[in-house]
């Protein structure tokens, strides 16, 4: 009873996940051969996609962590209407990256709302999403992702802050620490476990970003997952698609373990 009971309860989930995760994973690993990998590496889109994905992570994640922590600190100061703010700030939690891309398409497209607003201020519009302007194209994707995916970090940070007793902060204040000292010496160190989880989660999710870029730029700004989609759905070559997918898997696992190690020490 002591052992059989719980095992019986977890068995269905174990079997299900093994069938749908382990099996395809092994099947996938055995399918990608040298020729496919060479074809993937030789493809004109692969390296730009890898570079864009890396760049997106490097730019997006520090920005969104800074924003999320700032948002959490603002709410912690208990402003009026905090409930309303919280509600609006977490709406993007449930918005898909495809939908976020479409939302920001309405803003950034040539005849979109941003250029309309600029023209009412008598400023000439700009082709934000044109392939001739890779920087603004990239930034548009960053802004859309910042808008969509910061809520997740925000919620994790807020929950983490709630579990820190206010006593510590108050004690530090009583002993004369100013706001920045308290933030650096008291609040942030205690947020570390929450930040660690958020960081791993967000890096893995950021690696999977693609529909935002797809909606905003088509294939003008290729990302790794977008390329698997291209190879699979458009070019009808599942083997190369698998090869790219495995690259993403390897980087995901590497990132997860790397963070765990870096943050533990």
């Amino acid at each position: 009873m002591k052992l059989r009971g719980p095992l019986l309860l977890i068995a269905p989930s174990l079997i299900f996940l093994t069938a749908l995760f382990a099996w395809p994973l092994v099947a996938g690993l055995s399918q990608a051969n040298g020729a496919d990998i060479r074809r993937m590496l030789d493809d004109a889109y692969f390296w730009p996609a890898a570079r864009n994905t890396a760049l997106l992570i490097v730019v997006l994640i520090p920005l969104q962590f800074a924003l999320a922590i700032a948002m959490a600190l603002l709410l912690r100061a208990r402003p009026r209407f905090a409930g309303v703010y919280f509600y609006i700030w977490v709406i993007p939690l449930a918005i898909s990256d495809l939908a976020a891309g479409l939302v920001w398409l309405a803003v950034f497209t040539d005849r979109g709302y941003l250029n309309s607003a600029l023209s009412q201020l008598h400023i000439e519009g700009y082709a934000w999403l044109s392939y001739q302007h890779p920087v603004t194209m990239f930034l548009a994707v960053v802004v859309a992702e910042l808008w969509r995916s910061t809520s997740l970090v925000f919620v994790i940070v807020v929950a983490g802050m709630q579990s820190i007793p206010r006593d510590y902060d108050e004690a530090a204040a009583v002993f004369g620490a100013n706001y920045w000292q308290r933030l650096r010496k008291v609040i942030l160190p205690q947020l570390r476990p929450s930040l660690q989880v958020a960081l791993i989660l967000r890096t893995i999710l950021a690696l999977e970003t693609f529909a935002v870029a797809q909606a905003l730029t088509g294939r003008n700004m290729p990302l790794l997952v977008g390329e698997t989609y291209q190879w699979y759905a458009v070019l009808q070559n599942p083997n190369v698609a698998t090869a790219i997918a495995l690259v993403i898997l390897a980087v995901s696992l590497l990132a997860a373990f790397g963070y765990l190690r870096a943050l533990r020490s």
Partner: peptide, 29 residues
């Protein structure tokens, strides 16, 4: 129960798997 920790680790690991990695081989299956 014995196996509780490995099971939890297994869950966390599956959550870290990118969707594409599953989808393409799954499509074939």
């Amino acid at each position: 129960f014995r196996g509780r920790d490995p099971y939890q680790l297994f869950l966390l690991l599956t959550r870290a798997l990118p969707i594409v990695v599953l989808s393409v081989p799954l499509a074939r299956i």
